Amino acid sequence: MSAIRTVTGDIPAERFGVCDAHDHLFFGSPRLPGQELRSVPAARAELVAFAALGGKSVVQWTPYGLGRRAAELPPLSRETGVHVVAATGLHQAVHYDDRTLCELRGKLADVFVAELTEGIGTSGVRAGLIKVAGGFHSLDAHARWTMTAAAEAHRATGAPIAVHLELGTGALDVLDLLCGELGVPPHRVILGHLNRSPDLTVHRQAAESGSYLAFDGPSRANHATDWRMPDAVRALADAGHGSQLLLGGDTTTAAARSVDGGPGMPYLLRRVRPRLTAELGPELVGRILTDNPGRALAVEWPDPVGR
């Protein structure tokens, strides 16, 4: 039976509820010094605020080596009543030092599979998806390496692959590689950050492949795309792709948390949901927040040896 792999165990999709399909409770990168998401009380406060607005689940896209704090996730989930999905995978090379990348050479797919089926480190928490990343309008050697490993791990487990698109670009190149060359079924691919590049033609072409499209995160000053998102979502829904759309918050810095004055996790339900509902109607928005994430993340997980 297909199930969503959360940090407290596998659950059926119908229990997943209203979902923030891309966010971070914990995250740390040398590219963002001093802005790490490390505070457990702050993470708990974000989940509580999200739950108060009807949120039931959060998908943390934090991959290997970027401060996932996997052991903290189950108690946070139980305390707040919010389902949490953890990620394995690897981000862009700039987020890691050379030693870490060298240690992973030749065994990256094995690491992904182990974290999906056995657990992350000694935490025992199993990941529920694989997160990788492309570059700005390109796929460099690092991206091809990580996506090849992700495809191998997908074949071993069925896990979905979530892709950070740099500033929303490169979606078609990612699909050519993952689904064309590497044979990953398009419905197992989630393309992130499409709101940052509001190219409706590319959106439609990506949707026609059968992949999921995520509009995740409030607009930043250099993006200025929030006002275009309802039109992009409407165009995709009108073209018959409403069942492939996801929404998320993508909180990546401490300053962006609602407890520190930023939009944080509550923004998705406090501001994005009513805005989209006013323009697109409650039925479509409800499906995007509830039904679509359940389908995107539900997998026929294999039984690990010895379990």
Score class of each variant (00 low, 15 high):
T146L: 09
M147F: 04
T148M: 04
E152I: 11
A156W: 06
G158A: 03
G158V: 03
A159G: 10
A159C: 07
A159H: 07
A159D: 10
I161R: 00
V163K: 01
H164T: 02
L165T: 08
L165H: 08
E166T: 10
T169R: 07
T169C: 01
G170C: 06
L178N: 03
E181C: 05
L182A: 09
P186A: 08
H187M: 05
H187Q: 13
H187S: 14
H187V: 05
V189M: 06
V189R: 01
V189G: 05
L191G: 03
N195M: 06
R196I: 01
L200R: 11
V202A: 11
Q205W: 03
A206N: 05
S209C: 06
G210Y: 04
S211Q: 02
S211D: 02
Y212F: 15
F215I: 04
P218Q: 09
R220D: 14
R220T: 14
A221N: 11
A221F: 13
A221L: 13
A221I: 12
A224P: 00
A224C: 12
D226G: 12
D226Y: 07
R228N: 12
R228M: 15
R228P: 00
P230S: 09
D231S: 13
L236T: 11
D238W: 09
G240E: 11
H241C: 03
S243L: 00
L246I: 11
L246F: 13
L247F: 14
L247K: 05
G248L: 07
G248C: 11
